[in-house]
């Protein structure tokens, strides 16, 4: 009798647990649309490639901002390091993109781990300063080491070999496929991590670090781990950009990169993985449209969007989704 009751409860718990991590139909739809866009807009491969890379970049920030609550003003440090590593390595005759990607990931991971101990100290303010400082130092180094990085002119003449036998073409078809596949694979990994005990404890830390520690979660260790993971992802994104555009310049380390990625995650909403992806898409389209309208002053409109988003509430997407759900449910709403 009681054992049977326990067995029922157990089934309930497993069922609930599985529902919490199950794929929602909208997730399938999202990725089907992504795949379809590849074939539907063959003239837009270059743009889509860039969106995929930015999406990966903001996914990486979402890991540390949305899942660990660390505000970073210098996330471009890892992006830039990844880009330069992938670029410089081709100068030494290593032209295979996958090896380049691996090296870039390692470099960014190492930097992430090394700086995490600093970046996770103290208050939000200290974190802002340290993350900003790390990115500035890297920018300065890349600027000074002209013989290696090309300095202000950027890294010219990268020679990236074919990826699994496919040569990168000027229309970006191969590049776009490469970036999308890497994005998808890394997304799947992030999704698994988020639904693991490790991922649950990250959400716990974000919600309430005091209580997280009180159930035995080593808060600092977890933050170091996720910060490093976020750095690694950003490094991959940077490497993809360098490889697919065959170019890396100081721009990859600039402050506006760090600010832009914050904006992307903000637009899409933090802490559910898709926020970064949606945010990158919206941001890139917005940037493209605005810079066509006002080439020099599009920054103004980006700034305005940020201010309005903050004052109006960053959860606009969530509210929109709730509104749509209410409207489409029969018998509910108005």
């Amino acid at each position: 009798m009681t054992t049977q009751r326990i067995a029922t409860l157990r089934l309930q718990a497993v069922g609930l647990h599985d529902r919490l991590s199950a794929w929602h139909w909208s997730e399938y739809l999202f990725w089907v649309l992504v795949a379809a866009s590849y074939f539907l807009f063959p003239s837009r491969h270059l743009l889509m490639n860039e969106i995929a890379i930015l999406a990966l970049f903001s996914l990486s920030l979402d890991l540390i901002l949305g899942y660990a609550g660390v505000i970073s003003l210098g996330h471009a440090a890892f992006f830039g390091l990844g880009a330069y590593t992938a670029g410089i390595i081709t100068k030494f005759g290593v032209t295979d993109p996958l090896i380049g990607l691996g090296c870039a990931t390692l470099a960014a991971t190492a930097l992430g781990l090394a700086t995490s101990f600093l970046a996770l100290r103290g208050s939000d303010l200290t974190r802002l300063m340290v993350t900003l400082g790390v990115a500035l130092v890297l920018y300065e180094i890349a600027n000074r080491l002209g013989w290696l990085t090309g300095g202000a002119d950027g890294l010219q003449g990268m020679d990236v070999g074919p990826i699994l036998g496919f040569d990168f073409d000027i229309f970006g078809a191969v590049a776009n496929a490469y970036s999308l596949i890497v994005l998808f694979v890394l997304f799947l990994i992030a999704r698994r991590v988020v639904h693991s005990p490790f991922g649950w404890s990250l959400r716990a830390i974000r919600d309430n670090p005091l209580r997280a520690a009180a159930i035995g979660v080593p808060v600092r260790g977890r933050l170091v781990a996720v910060y490093t993971l976020g750095a690694a992802y950003a490094g991959v994104a940077g490497a993809l950009l360098a490889q697919t555009t065959q170019f890396a310049s100081l721009d990859v380390l600039a402050f506006h990169r760090s600010a832009d990625v914050l904006l992307m995650v903000t637009i899409g909403g933090v802490g559910y993985l898709y926020g970064g992806l949606i945010g990158a898409l919206v941001f890139k389209i917005m940037q493209d449209t605005l810079s066509n309208l006002t080439p020099q002053y599009w920054e103004f409109w980006i700034g305005l969007v940020l201010v309005v988003l903050v004052l109006g509430g960053r959860d606009w997407l969530e509210r929109l989704a709730a509104l749509v759900a209410r409207r489409t449910r029969p018998g509910a709403g108005r």
């Binding site: 647990h17 639904h195 693991s196 404890s201 159930i215 979660v217």
Partner: peptide, 28 residues
Amino acid sequence: FAAMTPLEGVGMAVSQTKGKGWEFWRSV
């Protein structure tokens, strides 16, 4: 943890106690 369910709250404490806190590849 206001945004979670009791299942997750207790589940986290249990998986932590059972030494699975660092497990990042398999689900709770």
